[in-house]
């Protein structure tokens, strides 16, 4: 269950509680409605129970695998020149792993850095 859906449930729950509170106020303080105060009280209680039900049971999170939140970059450099290349991390990469001859010069290229860039906060 997404966080947006959870917060939607919370808003519905608060709205129902406010509705129940309004009915209680009407039933108690508005004279023309005094004849219906019992019905209003029962309706208010029903709203309150619905609100609690949504608050307690609606907010349960379903457990599902998390999506990846980072982009891992492998930076390739060369000991003999200023060659620099960035690519996505692949299994087996590690910092200072030698990768053979450089694309630009006869020097040896190697993995200069690996780092993560968060995709979302």
């Amino acid at each position: 269950m997404s966080k947006q859906r959870q917060s939607r449930f919370a808003i519905i729950s608060i709205a129902l509680t406010l509705g129940a509170f309004t009915l209680f106020v009407f039933a108690t303080f508005v004279d023309p409605l005094s004849a219906y105060s019992t019905e209003l009280m029962v309706a208010g209680l029903a709203l309150l129970i619905a609100s609690w039900g949504i608050y307690f049971f609606g907010g349960r999170r379903a457990q599902k695998p998390e999506e990846s939140t980072e982009n891992v970059i492998t930076v390739i450099g060369c000991g003999g020149c200023d060659f620099r290349e960035e690519r996505a991390f692949t299994l087996g990469d590690y910092i200072f792993k030698e990768l053979g001859q450089c694309k630009k010069c006869p020097g040896n290229s190697y993995i200069r850095a690996i780092y993560a860039v968060p995709l979302k906060k």
Partner: peptide, 9 residues
């Protein structure tokens, strides 16, 4: 504990 950040590198 997770992949090293660019700031740390």
């Amino acid at each position: 504990l997770t992949t090293i950040r660019k700031e740390v590198v």
